[in-house]
């Protein structure tokens, strides 16, 4: 797999900057968006398979964005990162198509590990 594109969507610029810096150092191609609408525009331009989405975004929510991504890219692996979510809302995440979810603050090495696993999974799917 040549290009390891990751899209991180969060309305907090400092979080986006730090995530981008970390994943770039880890060798990934990182794209960022501050809203769901911005993320959908990027999908049309770039081929992305791994996503980190904040659940609460200004207009379109993380749940809605996840559904949209799954519609256009069924193979996508999408992770939810949320500041606060009840058990009911986390169950909604599973229904919407999220592969896993993390409560903030989450450690960057944890995210790096799941990212590596996600790309390994995608690679395995491609070979079959």
């Amino acid at each position: 797999m040549k290009e390891k594109n990751i899209l991180i969507v969060d309305d907090e610029p400092s979080v986006l900057r730090l995530f981008k810096l970390f994943f770039l150092r880890a060798g990934y191609n990182v794209l960022t968006a501050e809203s769901g609408e911005e993320a959908i525009e990027l999908l049309e331009e770039e081929k992305i398979l791994v996503f980190f989405l904040d659940l609460r975004l200004p207009k379109m929510s993380g749940l809605e964005l996840c559904r949209e991504i799954k519609k256009s890219i069924p193979m996508a692996i999408i992770y939810a990162i949320t500041g606060y979510a009840s058990l009911f809302e986390l169950s909604d995440c599973r229904v919407a198509g999220f592969d896993d979810y993390f409560n903030k603050p989450v450690s960057l090495p944890v995210l790096l590990k799941v990212t590596e696993e996600a790309f390994n999974k995608i690679e395995r799917w491609r070979k079959t």
Binding site: E12, S14, V15, L18, F19, F22, I81, G83, Y84, N103, K104, P105, V106, S107, L108
Partner: peptide, 10 residues
Amino acid sequence: NQPFQAVLSA
């Protein structure tokens, strides 16, 4: 949790 995330990541 937003600033906590930034602090932890930084």
